[in-house]
Simulated scan of single mutants.
Amino acid sequence: MKLKKVLSIFTIVLFAVACSTNPFTGKKTLALVPNSQILPMAFQQYEQFLSENKVVKNTSDARMITAIGQKISIAAERYLTANGYAGYLKDYAWEYNLVEDPAVNAWCMPGGKIVFYTGILPITQGEAGIAAVMGHEVAHALANHGQQRMSAGQLQVLGAVAGNVAFSKDPKNQQIFNDAYGIGSSVGVMLPFSRSHESEADRIGLTLMAMSGYEPLEAAELWVRMKENAGGNAPAEILSTHPSSDTRISNIKSWSAEAKAEARKYGVTSFKR
Rank of each mutant, 00 (worst) to 15 (best):
S8T: 11
N144C: 09
F15C: 13
H136N: 09
A31H: 01
F116A: 05
A219D: 10
K54N: 14
L239Q: 12
T247C: 06
E237P: 14
A76K: 06
A42H: 08
N173L: 10
V165G: 02
P171R: 11
P235Q: 10
E77Y: 09
A141H: 01
W255S: 15
I74H: 07
A42T: 11
C19G: 07
A180N: 12
G119P: 11
A230R: 08
N22V: 01
D170R: 14
I176T: 10
G135D: 05
K5C: 02
V187I: 15
L30H: 04
V56Y: 04
I38H: 08
T118L: 05
K260E: 12
E221S: 10
N251Q: 15
E228V: 10
F116L: 05
G163R: 13
A132C: 10
S194T: 11
Y214R: 06
F116R: 02
K272M: 05
P243R: 06
I130V: 15
F49M: 12
D91M: 02
I65Y: 14
A75V: 05
A141F: 00
L121G: 01
A93L: 07
Q48K: 15
E228Y: 05
M41N: 12
N35S: 10
N144Q: 14
L206S: 10
P243T: 04
R248N: 09
A234N: 14
N105G: 01
K90R: 12
D91A: 08
E258K: 13
L80G: 06
F193M: 15
I249V: 11
D101W: 00
S245T: 13
R264F: 08
I249G: 00
S151V: 01
C108I: 01
K272H: 08
L155W: 07
R195T: 08
A162T: 08
W94M: 02
Y79I: 05
I9P: 01
V55Q: 07
G188F: 07
H145C: 13
L3Q: 11
Q44Y: 12
V56A: 06
G232R: 07
K113M: 07
Q37F: 11
L14C: 14
S20W: 00
A257Y: 00
K265E: 12
V133C: 06
D61F: 14
A75P: 10
G69T: 12
L239A: 15
G112T: 05
Y96F: 15
I38W: 12
L14I: 14
L217K: 11
N53E: 10
V165I: 15
D91W: 00
A139L: 02
L142Q: 10
S151T: 07
S270Q: 15
E237M: 09
S212D: 08
T25I: 04
K2Y: 00
